[in-house]
């Protein structure tokens, strides 16, 4: 008996997904990230413990060493850094769900579906970025305790900075996670990368007047350019006196000039594109 191999439905081209189908997939992958996040209450709570500890222990501890200048102190200075820390940690660790999904098989359900890997990666990154932004924004509730003034426009500006930062870091996490097979591997890689990057990003100390070696490292660290805009918008809204602003400076100087906030955001956006591309190639190779 002869076997007709390519008869069947009169269809010559392959049926690649349409743009509408791709967008729907992005939305669904995003929604799943949020559902899973909302179901793991212990994870939500525990992810606040570390930044809160940092804020109060480091903030109050260091405030005794660094003088209060016209009502502005180290606690208020470090607060945006702690918000950034919350966002960065949540964003990177949200990518761990890819390693989970691989271990428990669900990744396969996604990879065999007639959708593009791009839609899966974008959905995943947007999901992680949303969660990280929500976490960072919840941290703002501590602002009155620290004495940081919030206004509605300020909150929106902060959310914008958080979203961009979160998207970049989630894409970075996905790029790493898609190349890693085991849970332990991801955790080790992240501990090795995440904490040095956070500590050397200017989240916890001003970026001027540092020794040369530290200046170089902080300028090479991409996180620096994500943290500074957040501090910038928050500190701008606190009506610092010129003396206080000199004691607690914002801005990253590079080759003698202080980068405008737009340039910093541009650098972070460019990094987001690079990491998304790396995440995509990592996902393409995954079987």
């Amino acid at each position: 008996m002869t076997v007709p191999l390519r008869a069947g439905p009169a269809l010559v081209a392959d049926q690649s997904p349409s743009l509408g189908e791709e967008l729907r997939t992005v939305g669904m992958v995003w929604e799943r990230e949020l559902i899973r996040f909302e179901r793991t209450r212990t994870r939500i709570l525990s992810s606040f413990i570390q930044p809160i500890l940092f804020l109060f222990v480091l903030g109050y501890g260091m405030s005794t060493l660094t003088p209060t200048v016209n009502g502005f102190d180290f606690k208020k200075f470090v607060f945006p850094g702690i918000v950034a820390m919350t966002v960065v940690t949540t964003a990177i660790f949200s990518a761990i769900s890819i390693v989970w999904d691989r271990e428990f098989g669900f990744l396969r359900e996604m990879l065999v579906a007639p959708v593009s890997r791009g839609a899966l990666v974008v959905g995943k990154c947007l999901g992680g970025a949303t969660i990280a932004t929500v976490q960072g924004t919840i941290m703002l509730a501590l602002a009155p305790l620290i004495g940081v003034r919030l206004t509605l426009p300020l909150v929106f500006a902060v959310i914008g900075c958080e979203l961009l930062m979160a998207l970049t870091l989630t894409a970075f996490g996905v790029a790493v996670a898609s190349r890693i097979q085991r849970m332990e591997g991801f955790q080790v890689v992240m501990q090795l990368l995440l904490f040095p990057m956070l500590f050397l990003s200017g989240a916890l100390f001003p970026l001027s007047g540092l020794p040369t070696w530290l200046t170089v490292i902080t300028r090479v660290n991409p996180l620096t350019y994500a943290v500074d805009p957040l501090r910038h918008v928050i500190q701008d809204a606190q009506n610092l006196t010129p003396q206080a602003a000199a004691r607690f400076p914002v801005g990253v100087s590079l080759f003698g000039t202080t980068l405008p906030i737009g340039a910093e955001l541009g650098i972070v956006s460019a990094l987001a594109v690079v990491f998304l591309a790396l995440a995509l190639t990592g996902f393409r190779r995954t079987g």
Partner: peptide, 23 residues
């Protein structure tokens, strides 16, 4: 051969996810 459900989701959510993935 090996399970590919998301066991953190409900049965219905797993199906809804699949429905979108398969258009």
């Amino acid at each position: 051969q090996d399970q590919t459900l998301d066991d953190q989701l409900t049965a219905e959510e797993n199906l809804r996810f699949h429905a979108v993935l398969y258009h």
